[in-house]
């Protein structure tokens, strides 16, 4: 399906697959990132990505095979569970968001480690393939992964587009939306599900530890350039895609792991935008203060 695109790129086939794969993942994460960042839930992504480890391990233990789709499903389920645990702790446990995130993050990480150790000690050679969920492995991307990411990403973006006004009002003013008749839990569930999807797609490429940067940095960069949410989502997706693609190429050429390279690129973009953005940037603010003073 995407063979023509891979052929059209001036890269060898394996490199082209990595670049297209990281670009797609970057786009999906960037476009869905506002769901976390604008609700002040950036670190949710961190706990969710750590949560994927346990899910991957359980999926592997149950099925005994390393089928990407199965592991992905396990990861998605456990990332979603982690998210609901956090929301539940905030609501019912009267915990502050940061403490709730911290508790869930360390619990799911501990659980993941124990399960992975168990798999490792049962002498299964394939467990090394599970480890890549922690630190990421872009070189392992195959064409099938891209198709899967494209399909899921398109579905997620369709949901965002259809439910755009709802998500916008829920992000901006959760109380108002609840009063207006849409239950908060429904919006929470939808946006959490979408985030889980983004996390799961990205986690194998950049790793659980770095995944959160892929959700947050493109949004921060785009946020400085536009005020409108309707422009923020595609712009942030674009930034994510560019960082993914460039990071994919650079890491291939320099023989470096792709995750850290992509994350550093995205962070650099965010910092550039924070400093130089025409209206909201640090420099612009300093200049305005000078003129005003």
């Amino acid at each position: 399906m995407i063979g023509w695109l891979l052929d059209a790129l001036p890269l060898s086939y394996p490199d082209a697959v990595v670049v297209v794969g990281t670009a797609v993942v970057g786009f999906v994460a960037g476009a869905l990132g506002p769901l976390a960042v604008l609700r002040q839930r950036s670190m949710f992504g961190d706990a969710m990505s750590h949560g994927t480890l346990a899910g991957v391990a359980v999926a592997f233990l149950v099925t005994g095979v390393k089928v990407p789709e199965v592991l992905l499903l396990g990861a998605a389920v456990s990332a979603g569970l982690a998210a609901f645990a956090m929301i539940g702790l905030e609501r019912a446990g009267r915990l502050r968001p940061d403490a709730a995130i911290g508790v869930v993050l360390s619990t799911s990480l501990a659980l993941g480690i124990v399960l992975l150790t168990h798999i490792g000690s049962s002498g299964d050679a394939q467990q090394s393939g599970l480890n890549e969920y922690l630190v990421g492995q872009a070189a392992g991307i195959v064409e099938r992964d891209i198709v899967l990411a494209l399909a899921l990403g398109a579905a997620a973006l369709a949901v965002v587009t259809v439910g755009f006004r709802l998500l916008r009002s829920a992000t901006f003013d959760p109380g108002f939306t609840a009063v207006a008749g849409v239950p908060t839990w429904a919006v929470d569930a939808a946006s959490t599900g979408l985030l889980a999807l983004a996390v799961v797609l990205g986690v194998r490429t950049v790793g659980a530890i770095l995944m959160v940067a892929l959700l947050v940095a493109p949004v921060v960069a785009a946020r400085q350039l536009t005020k409108r949410l309707a422009a923020l989502v595609p712009l942030s997706g674009l930034f994510g895609a560019v960082c993914g693609a460039v990071g994919g190429v650079v890491s291939g050429k320099a023989e470096l792991p792709a995750g850290p390279v992509i994350v550093l690129l995205a962070t650099a973009l965010a910092v550039l935008s924070v400093v130089f953005a025409p209206r909201r940037g640090v420099l612009a603010r300093v200049r305005r203060r000078r003129v005003a003073g």
Partner: peptide, 10 residues
Amino acid sequence: IVGSDAALAL
């Protein structure tokens, strides 16, 4: 410019 959660994540 950035919320405290996003600052940390960055």
